[in-house]
Amino acid sequence: MLRLELYKIFKKPRTYISFGIVTAFALVIQLALVADGKNFIAFAMQGVSAQFDIGGNVLNGYLVTYIILQSLLLQIPLLIALVAGDVLAGEANMGTLRLLLTKPVSRSKIVLVKFTAAVCYALLLLLWLAVIALGLSILFFGTGDLVNMKSDAFVVLLKDDIMWRYIAAFMFAALAMTTVAALALLLSAFADNSIGPIMGTMGIIVVLMIFSTLDLPIFDVVKQYLFTTHMVGWKGFFDDPVPYDAIRFSAIVLVVYTILFVGATVFYFRKKDIKS
């Protein structure tokens, strides 16, 4: 059944749009940095270079990958929503959902299999991102120490101490994208065409992301409970020391949200009156 769901996802051209967008985005950033990376780095580091001379290969593959990941922070969840928001609503729209439910399989299992298929897609997209962003960036720019500019700190990580951080960061990102897929799936259960869940997921993520990133005291209480605040937990692996407790908490929050979203989807879908 999972194979069938994966087949359904990967036979749609829109699935490959995401891979194309990720590739294009990464290549555009890489080419832009090849062309004008020095100016970009000089601008980004002007706060530090007023007092220090930074030499060596600052603009290396690790930094370029970090820039790509940072830039795709908002886009990747939207690309996940493009597919995950379609898994139930798309079938409802095409009128195949009733047919699917005639199979001797519980509705819960159908939801879980569709969720698993959406997560597989999300993981493949992340894997592709890792290959394109990390692989090509290292190929174009080489390796070196990583400079991470935080709002209040200038963090330098030695090049031998970076690859494990990327592996951990991609694993954490996979967890975050699982939460996004779960949200899109939930909205997909409520709709009869995929535009609503896709746009809904995008809208929720964009609005919550604003709450999470705006450094206003009024949002301080709320934002620690928003999953969008914890989606950037992968960045914690590029800090020194790594805030493991905070990352663990973020991971727990994302798991809880995922369970809630999937649980709510199962609960609703089991009771849903399927008319199409």
Binding site: Q51, T213, K235, P243, A246
Partner: peptide
């Protein structure tokens, strides 16, 4: 020993993860 200046980039730009 040197005198250091303040270092601050808006959080909206760096999109920090508030680990601590």
């Amino acid at each position: 020993y040197i005198d250091t200046k303040e270092f601050k980039i808006p959080k909206g730009v760096t999109m920090d993860y508030d680990g601590a």
